[in-house]
Simulated assay, not measured.
Amino acid sequence: MASRRVLRLRTSLLAAAAGGASVLYPMRSAYAEAPPKEAIPDRKPIYSDHASLLPKPKPSDTSPVSEPSSTAPTPTDRLTGQVRRARIFLYDQSFAAEDSINKFMSYILNKETSFTNTIASLAPAPETGEQLLPGAIYVLVATMTGSIIARNRGLFLRTTFPLAVGITAGWILIPFTMRNIADLSWEYEKKVPLISNTHAEIRGFTKEAWRQTRVHARLVGDWADEKAAAGREKMESWVRDGK
């Protein structure tokens, strides 16, 4: 029992001494300081490159200076060039085809616009008061009538007589429309000098014949009026003498 008490007393004393030491001298971490990198001198490596130690040969004056040889194009470069040329060719062809289509569509549109404007220009002006629809029907009926009249005649009359009747009816019934048609026909005829010259000669001959016809008709009318007046006077004198 006495030994146990002594052992406990010794243990308690050791624990008290350790606690006092920890209080008086607390535990701290010690850090070592290294010098900066700039202060460390460069050191030569232990193992140096053997090739760097060999002396470099100096070119002599008599030896020719070697020039770098030009490298030939590789198959990849040649393939790239072929692909580039093929793409440029396809682009040029597609651009030419697109340009041709655009020009063709523009040509069709211009022709359609020109045709529409030409047909619209043949109609009479509103201030003339001319109605195209009934007049055109009357001209067609007159042409068919001329064809019926000349059906038993020769080929020349069967061809020209209905046409002459239709043209005459057109100038009488729809004169402004016929004038527009004549002007348009003359514009197209001027592109062919032979036809335009022949038409001009026929037109001049027709105008001169019509003028001569009107002059002679006026002369015949005046002569008939004179003869009628003279006959009337003679009849009146006979009547007076008879009374």
Rank of each mutant, 00 (worst) to 15 (best):
P75S: 12
G81D: 10
R153H: 08
V139M: 05
S52W: 14
L132H: 00
E130C: 05
G231A: 13
A15G: 04
A17G: 01
I137D: 13
N110P: 00
K191M: 11
S114A: 15
S63Y: 13
I148W: 15
A86W: 00
P193H: 04
D42S: 10
K56D: 11
K44W: 04
A217Q: 09
P41G: 08
I195L: 14
K190L: 13
R28F: 04
E38V: 10
L194I: 04
A16Y: 00
A224Y: 10
V192A: 09
K243P: 03
S121T: 01
Q131V: 06
K44D: 10
S29K: 13
T128A: 11
A182P: 02
I174C: 14
E208D: 08
T177F: 15
T143L: 06
L219W: 13
L184D: 03
P73E: 03
M1Q: 03
T159V: 02
L157W: 10
A16S: 11
R203S: 15
P162H: 03
M27H: 14
Y107I: 00
D49N: 09
V215S: 11
E67I: 14
I40K: 04
R43C: 08
R158D: 01
A97N: 06
R84C: 04
G204P: 00
P134C: 02
A72K: 10
D77H: 11
I174F: 02
P193Q: 04
H50Y: 08
I108P: 00
S60R: 09
A229T: 05
A200K: 14
A209N: 05
E201Q: 07
G146W: 03
L163S: 15
S48N: 04
A120W: 00
R4N: 06
P59Y: 03
G231L: 12
V215T: 13
A96W: 06
A97G: 03
I172W: 10
I181A: 08
R10K: 12
W238E: 14
R203M: 14
H216F: 11
L90E: 05
P75A: 05
L90Q: 07
F156T: 09
K58I: 08
V239D: 14
L155M: 11
E187T: 08
K243S: 12
L122T: 05
P134K: 05
G231R: 14
S237D: 06
V220G: 07
I119G: 02
A16R: 05
P35M: 12
L163C: 06
A120M: 06
N197V: 12
A30E: 02
L219K: 13
D222H: 09
T74E: 01
T128Q: 02
T177M: 11
L53V: 02
I101W: 12
P45M: 05
R151C: 10
S237H: 04
T11E: 12
L157Y: 07
Q82D: 10
L194A: 08
P41H: 05
